[in-house]
Design a protein around this nucleic acid. Structure first.
Lengths: 196, 196
DNA sequence: ATATTATGAATGATGATTCATTTTTTTTGT
DNA sequence: ACAAAAAAAATGAATCATCATTCATAATAT
């Protein structure tokens, strides 16, 4: 068995366990059991419990970034790009629910994680949005007075809150596609019936 | 010293300590010290550590709801109401930073809190938004095809992510007012230069 | 006096981490 | 190809620090 196999197995087990019990309530022995290894084995691959969380995050969000980038790069229209980002973010819940749950609930929470460990990867992810906004502004599609830094924050926040709704309620009250369309549509066109 | 004094003192101390260390890393003795009471005293007013968190949430969000309602009820125009909600939500960081931080980081996190304990108060808070949306639709100001349930989620999420940005960075990169205006403006008018 | 409120040291459960031992894999010599 | 030796990987029981919670006692109020 190659090194990476055990590492991978433990990471996947940790995602499951963290999703089910939360980081602080998850026991190392839970993860070990889920991964079908001994407790001690985990410490051959990770420095400590917290390291499992960090390392998992790095790996997984890396993959997510690659995937969205790929999809967005195939598109010309910034308006479409916005929708693609939205769809992609929300689809995570369908495809990798446990992961979505951990990213959503466990990582965000920890001041430690977000404050001390200034997260490059996370910033990289949401900066995809501000890049799209700037592109749209350059093309004259988006209003010039918008601050890309605020938009990225608001857009990501909106999507993320939708995720949370889904994670908390068992059944999605709306279809993923419909939700992605509504959110991107609202950001693009606004809520009002006409311009004032 | 009236009962409520100790209760209040402990709650306030807990807010400070939870904000600084996070719920799981906060020790009861930290809270006791901060509140200048004995460890045991805390158990005369709360059932357990978790109960402090819940109880704090109930009390504080209750106050917040009252305040926003008051402000919003004085307003006729749903567009203005949206902005008021935004401003109010963001201003929490200025006025009660520790509380904002706990609501932001600690409460959202815990699956336990949000899943098991179906939070009436929280729902009540964000439902203020959907109520405004419906009002705006009834008045013909907001587009009929919008789903109030999605808007409330997106709007709250956007604001909350702004809060997070502030909490994580020491200095607000934008003024609160400017941010509130930008977010509400974007939701109302959209990002695009013209209707298509 | 009695009842109420507060104290903080002691208890006991928990669970992350360690490490002496075992198992498995790789290397070496014939 | 095979066995012995060495190295690497894995095990899981034991360790040990950490707190939440309790409760016998003390202080304060009625």
């Amino acid at each position: 068995m190659r090194i990476s196999d055990k590492h991978q197995k433990i990471t996947q087990a940790a995602i499951k366990v963290f999703a089910r019990k939360g980081f602080f309530n998850a026991r190392i022995s839970d993860i070990a059991k889920e991964a079908k290894v001994a407790d001690g084995t985990i410490y051959l691959y990770f420095n400590n419990k917290y390291d499992i969380l960090i390392s998992m995050f790095e790996d997984e969000i890396g993959k997510i970034i690659l995937r969205v980038r790929l999809l967005i790069d195939q598109e010309e229209d910034p308006r479409k790009m916005m929708e693609i980002f939205a769809l992609n973010h929300l689809q995570l819940i369908e495809g990798k629910r446990d992961l979505a749950e951990v990213l959503q609930m466990e990582l965000r929470q920890s001041n430690k994680f977000m404050k001390e460990y200034r997260n490059k990867k996370f910033i990289e992810y949401i900066d995809i949005i501000s890049t799209i906004v700037r592109k749209g502004q350059k093309m004259g599609l988006f209003r010039q007075e918008l601050l890309p830094g605020i938009i990225k924050c608001a857009y990501f926040g909106a999507l993320d809150e939708m995720s949370r709704l889904w994670i908390l309620s068992q059944k999605p009250p709306y279809s993923i596609k419909e939700a992605a369309r509504q959110v991107s549509d609202m950001f693009l066109h606004g809520m009002m019936t006409r311009k004032t």
